[in-house]
Nucleic acid binder design. Structure first.
Length: 155
DNA sequence: GCCAACGTTGGC
DNA sequence: GCCAACGTTGGC
C-alpha cells in the first residue's frame, strides 16, 4: 500500500465533483509531467490512498481522500488534436502520457489549508512542499494519517 | 551536452 | 495579474 497526494484545480475538478461521476470515479487526465506520469506508471497500485489537494483555490489545501481505481493507461486526450492536452509527439503505439482512475473515498470535515500544512512539524519532509509545482507526489503512511487527523478535527 | 528561451504551475 | 520556480525545448 502506497499513499499519494494529487493536486487539482477545483474550478476544473473538485472533491465534490466526484459525486457527479459514474461510480464516483474520475479518469485523472491531463498530467503532462514526466515525473508525475512515472509515479502513476511505476508506483500506483489499485487501492492506494490519495489525498486530494485543491490548488489555485482560496484557500488552497487538502480537501479529502480518494483511492486509485485502475492501473495506468494511456490518456486519450493526447491523441485528440482538438484537446488542450493534445501531444503531437505521442502515438497510440507509443503513448507518452498516462492516467489512472481515481475513486472518491471521503471529503474531509474541513479543508486543511496550505498555511497549516506548512506549519505542521510532521510535514517537514512532505514532498509536496519541497517540490514546487509537481502535481503528483508520494506520502508516507504517517503523513497520510496526519492529513486525516487534521481533516477530521471538529469545529 | 550546454544553456538560453520559453511555457506552466500555483501562491499571493 | 504578477512573478518565482523549474521543467522542457531547441539551437549550437
Amino acid at each position: 500500500m502506497h499513499y499519494w497526494l494529487m493536486k487539482t484545480e477545483p474550478d476544473v475538478f473538485s472533491i465534490d465533483d466526484f459525486l457527479t461521476r459514474k461510480d464516483r470515479t474520475e479518469g485523472w487526465n491531463g498530467v503532462r509531467n514526466f515525473e508525475a506520469r512515472n509515479f502513476m506508471r511505476d508506483g500506483m497500485r489499485v487501492g492506494d490512498l490519495v489525498i486530494i489537494y485543491h490548488s489555485n483555490a482560496t484557500p488552497p489545501g487538502a480537501a479529502g481522500v480518494a483511492e486509485v481505481a485502475s492501473a495506468a493507461y494511456p490518456d486519450p486526450d493526447q491523441f485528440d488534436p482538438a484537446s488542450e492536452y493534445h501531444d503531437a509527439k505521442s502515438t497510440r503505439e507509443n503513448p507518452r502520457w498516462l492516467q489512472v482512475d481515481v475513486k472518491f473515498v471521503k471529503k474531509f470535515d474541513r479543508l486543511v489549508p496550505l498555511d497549516e500544512i506548512r506549519a505542521e512539524p510532521r510535514f517537514d519532509e512532505l514532498v509536496m512542499l519541497r517540490r514546487n509545482r509537481l502535481s503528483i507526489t508520494p506520502l508516507t503512511a504517517a503523513e497520510f494519517r496526519v492529513f486525516e487527523e487534521l481533516g477530521s478535527r471538529r469545529g
